[in-house]
Amino acid sequence: MHFLILTALKAEALPIIEVFGLRKDSKTHLYQNNNISLLITGVGRDKTKERLQNLHQVYSNFDQTIVVNVGIAGGNPHQTKIGELYRVNVIFDEENKQCFIPDILCRHPLTELSLTTVAKSVNKDRDCFTGLVDMEGSVIFREMSRYVPLHRLVFLKLVSDHMDIDDWRRIIDVTGLIAKQIDLIKSILVSLDHHVLTNNVILSDKVFDMIQRGASQLSLTETQTHQLMEWTENYIKLTENDLERLAPYFIKKPNSKKERNHIFESIRELFST
């Protein structure tokens, strides 16, 4: 599996960058090493939304990616302890009243709590908020659930305050708080790293490319390309044979639609036999 870690602040990212030996790619602004990437989104809805909406330009391996949001959060004083790490099981968006629920399918060692995403820091009426409070969670959920299934969205929140600070910038040692839990964060990532969570794939990249190139060579229509993909999948699932016999059909570029359709029919016959 690949992990895409999202933090709002550089101060939150620093211990993660260090423990995984990540290096910043100056073009993409992603910190990377092997199967771990990290993006700093900035604080608040707008910045987070903007960064994530542009993410597809620099990151594409979503079929095998687990997205992990790591960050500090305010905590209800009766339910949370400062410095403790929690797993989020439901996110309420205070602004639009929507509710977002990640799928928690795999075992983990953390206490689970709800998270409310707010527009401004909370420092009064704190008892109105159960669980945790942050400023990005719902936006991360909404944006990233376009790319990965809900069981590959993980929200880990570390309580930095009991909603008794009027400005999050006054939280003194964010890096230190995360650093104290970095071993736990790392162990959670390691425990999630299992191939069973990846998307099902029938066509390997090599076969997929061969079909795409073949379809382009034959000038197949979109529907024909889709059918060809489907036949290829059927063939692989049912026979488990390789596709060497298909390659000769892709050599010659047809001179007319009629010839193209003729070749296409020959491929259909090949697969039916």
Partner: peptide, 18 residues
């Protein structure tokens, strides 16, 4: 949860993994 559909009808679920 406010409504069962907010869990059951979410887009992005994976039936077989669930």
């Amino acid at each position: 949860i406010p409504d069962y559909k907010s869990v059951f009808n979410r887009p992005g679920q994976d039936f077989q993994t669930q």
